[in-house]
Design a protein around this nucleic acid. Structure first.
Lengths: 332, 332
DNA sequence: GTGAAAGCGCTAACAC
DNA sequence: GTGTTAGCGCTTTCAC
């Protein structure tokens, strides 16, 4: 718990000026071979590493990429895996920041985090499911699963409409006719598109759309509890639910089971994302897979492109329906 | 991509000095109510947020806790979930840093990361499976799954000997007699203890310990490939493997399957950790559960204690054997 | 109640 | 080839 070793300590110990130490460390010209090796020896002895904070205040580049999230939930974590491995063998380090932990409100967390880290600590940021498209950012950003109404090309997303349609069609093909939709965070483009896919599939099967069957879940487990109950309280019961993501699908199953219903016999449930928890759940969740690690890697590539001055091209990836154990034909 | 809004911008726009803005923002005395509200209005208008970097250079506290990892693998990620949720409703933000991504070597990553972030960016750090016990740190640290030979009380670990013994006993009770051990990172206390547990269980069953059956895996999937092959190349084949963690257990199963072996019929495999991937694997992995999120939460509590000046008490948590599909009686 | 000035650790001009 | 100096954005004495 001592004070950290600073460049001044090194300079003092080496008997040279702070500037010389800096030059030596950063391989700048104007240091004799002798001085260089001497200074580097002292650096090694003292175990000195430059402070990211001080360095980034003076320098332009910090060689750190920030992944900004509202919270460390499974979706963000899977993405982080991809980001991290894509950054291997590059000169960049990764720093993941959950800035709204103590903020009380989740709204606008990305603006806050960006202001606090951007321009100084990080060279660029990957925003995971941002609540809004930040304008006037101080560093290049790439958004994964972006906010509605984005015209920013620096986005990574999936074919949500098609995926949701496939999920709903799967339920229809099993024979379900009354299918509820536990909707996602309506500020995200993905939630709207998934609802659209749900509607498209119903229309293709000539089933009239019933707005009372669409109930808000909000993507988070805690926010989905009420919606899950509401679905089960429907006067004319549904036999299946398409949840907008896996976290709410899992919560849907939890609530159903709590109320004595058996999945999939009494109720079929389909999710979206294929977070790792989906396959680990009992019963295993039928869901629509997003290639999360690949999306993280794509976001990294895009960010590095932008950092090199190139114009980004939006990336949209395909989804795959993964049929597991949470869906079956309706009972009756 | 504009320059970030600084305190100077705010001061200029508000027509006051930088010092006054700082006082207003931080609620210091010596600002008239009128000036205060005026300044705060400008702050809101400009969307100003103080730079974490600049603030932490001057201030003691940054209200940010760092989770330092070598890489974002499942073990660290699960832990991060616990850390993050434990920090909710506190005044702290979480920042996870993978500092060795570009470092070339994994050795000593914690010293480097600590030097770069400590003393400035973060108030305290949680080190996940550190390769060495850093001395002379600039901030309080808590180690999860610590290095061998630590006498530092600020550690969170599990009962590895008992867990490994339970895993091995499980295989023995199924009737296995030749059981290999795919060993973990020997620089970590956990790997040594797990080998000890394996030996204890064998001894309890009067099975002589055969050193050729202990083969290094190193905890990472990529590092376990060779060891997995070596186990299957054993002249006198084993019927079961106790892998030191889930990642190497999963790699063991992959290699076995690649070589035409069926798990669990031809080979039983037990892991350790119960990362979420274990339950998602086909076949589902029998493993020893560590309560990862709880361990993350415990590390947070310990760190906050130390930050408040209290002496830490080492925490050791219990493990649970989770029997799934990757283990069965030997074929013969 | 407010502002000027110093300084956190570091890098980049510029002087010597 | 090396040292001096200024300044990044911010907080904090200390004058006024």
């Amino acid at each position: 718990m001592n004070r950290r070793t600073t460049i001044t300590d090194v300079a003092l110990a080496a008997g040279v000026s702070v500037a010389t130490v800096s030059k030596a460390i950063n391989g700048r010209y104007g240091v004799s071979a002798e001085t260089l090796s001497h200074v580097m020896g002292v650096v090694a002895d003292l175990g000195y590493e430059s402070s990211i904070v001080a360095t980034s205040m003076r320098r332009r580049r910090t060689l750190v990429i920030g992944v900004l999230v509202a919270e460390f939930e499974p979706f963000a974590l899977q993405l982080l895996r991809g980001v991290s491995s894509a950054l291997e063998n590059t000169e960049y380090d990764v720093l993941a920041y959950a800035g709204s932990v103590s903020a009380g409100t989740h709204l606008g967390w990305e603006r806050r985090s960006l202001s606090r880290l951007g321009g100084t600590l990080i060279d660029g940021a990957i925003l995971v499911t941002p609540t809004a498209a930040p304008s006037e950012t101080s560093v290049p950003i790439v958004a994964v699963d972006p906010h509605v109404g984005t015209d920013d090309p620096a986005t990574v997303s999936v074919a949500n409409v098609e995926g949701a349609s496939a999920a709903t069609s799967h339920l229809l093909s099993l024979g379900h006719r009354r299918i509820a939709h536990l909707r996602g965070r309506t500020d995200l483009e993905s939630a709207r598109e998934r609802e659209q896919g749900y509607r498209n599939a119903l229309r293709a099967s000539d089933i009239p759309f019933d707005p009372t069957l669409v109930i808000d879940g909000g993507y988070r487990a805690a926010d989905s509890t009420a919606g899950a109950h509401a679905i089960l309280d429907l006067p004319d019961p549904v036999t299946a639910v398409f949840a907008a993501n896996d976290l709410s699908a899992i919560e849907m199953m939890r609530v159903a089971s709590e109320r004595g219903l058996h999945v999939p016999d009494d109720l079929s449930v389909v999710g979206f994302d294929d977070i790792i928890d989906a396959a680990a759940h009992v019963p295993q969740l039928t869901t629509v897979r997003q290639p999360l690690p690949e999306m993280g890697a794509a976001a990294v590539r895009m960010l590095l492109e932008i950092l090199q001055g190139h114009e980004p091209e939006p990336v949209q990836m395909a989804t795959t329906l993964v049929v597991r154990e949470s869906t079956a034909p309706p009972r009756s």
